[in-house]
Simulated scan of single mutants.
Amino acid sequence: MGDVGTPNNEEGTRSLSPNNLDSEEILKVKAKIEEMEEEATKLRAMQSNLDEMQCELVERRGDVDSRSVFVGNVDYSASPEELQSHFQSCGRINRVTILLDRYTGTSKGYAYIEFAEPDLVPGALIMNESIFKDRPLKVVPKRTNFPGLKGHSSSSHSFRYRRRAGRSARRGADLRFAGRNHYRPY
């Protein structure tokens, strides 16, 4: 057995150590490091572009939301054209969206109306409680949803859980499984 850096057999093979690395190998490693640094720079640039595009999207969404109103208590048989004619007195309308249930395709009973200018929204808010197809409409400004924020309240969830747990306790059920549909064969 030979020491590190010395030939360990008759053919003169060398073991790798910092003292006897070929300059060619060092250049390859340096080139690989430079390539990785260039790649990291490209990735940082792509990430910053993505962040800028996301900010633009949120700003654009906020702009559209500032020109829109939420309309609740819409008759289930209403069409976008009928809603547009009802709100035509408020000004030029870009889009009327009636939300549908994804499974049945029926109306959910509310809509969004996007106007051409944000100045037209106060005129549409005056239409709150106006009668459309024998129903009073609920008209409020559209709120902007921000990515990552949940829309439900944890307090209402805990209230439901407590109520359900109390009801289960009266029936003699195990409180650890109150409100959950766990399969318990025994």
Rank of each mutant, 00 (worst) to 15 (best):
S68K: 01
F177Q: 12
Y186F: 09
A116K: 00
N19C: 13
I126V: 06
G179L: 12
V58L: 14
V64L: 14
G123T: 00
Y112S: 13
R180S: 09
Q54R: 14
S17M: 06
R164G: 09
Y110N: 04
S66V: 01
A165Q: 05
I126N: 04
S155K: 06
P122D: 01
H157F: 08
V58D: 02
K32G: 03
V96I: 14
S89A: 14
P141H: 07
E82P: 05
F159D: 08
V71P: 06
E11V: 12
G5V: 05
L50E: 05
D51I: 14
K108Q: 04
V71I: 12
H86Y: 03
E56P: 05
S89L: 14
S48E: 04
V96A: 08
E117I: 00
Q88G: 10
E117C: 00
E82T: 10
P80K: 06
E81K: 14
D119G: 04
D65S: 12
L100S: 12
V58I: 11
R163G: 05
R67P: 00
E34D: 10
R164T: 10
G148E: 05
K133P: 05
L125C: 14
S107D: 02
G105I: 10
E24Y: 10
A124V: 01
R61A: 04
N128E: 08
E129S: 15
F70N: 03
F146S: 12
E81F: 14
D3G: 13
R180W: 04
D119K: 02
D119W: 03
D101Q: 03
L149M: 13
H157V: 10
D101E: 03
N94R: 08
R135W: 02
L125I: 12
Y112D: 13
T6K: 08
N20V: 08
P147T: 04
E37S: 12
F70M: 09
T13P: 08
S158N: 08
R163A: 13
S168E: 11
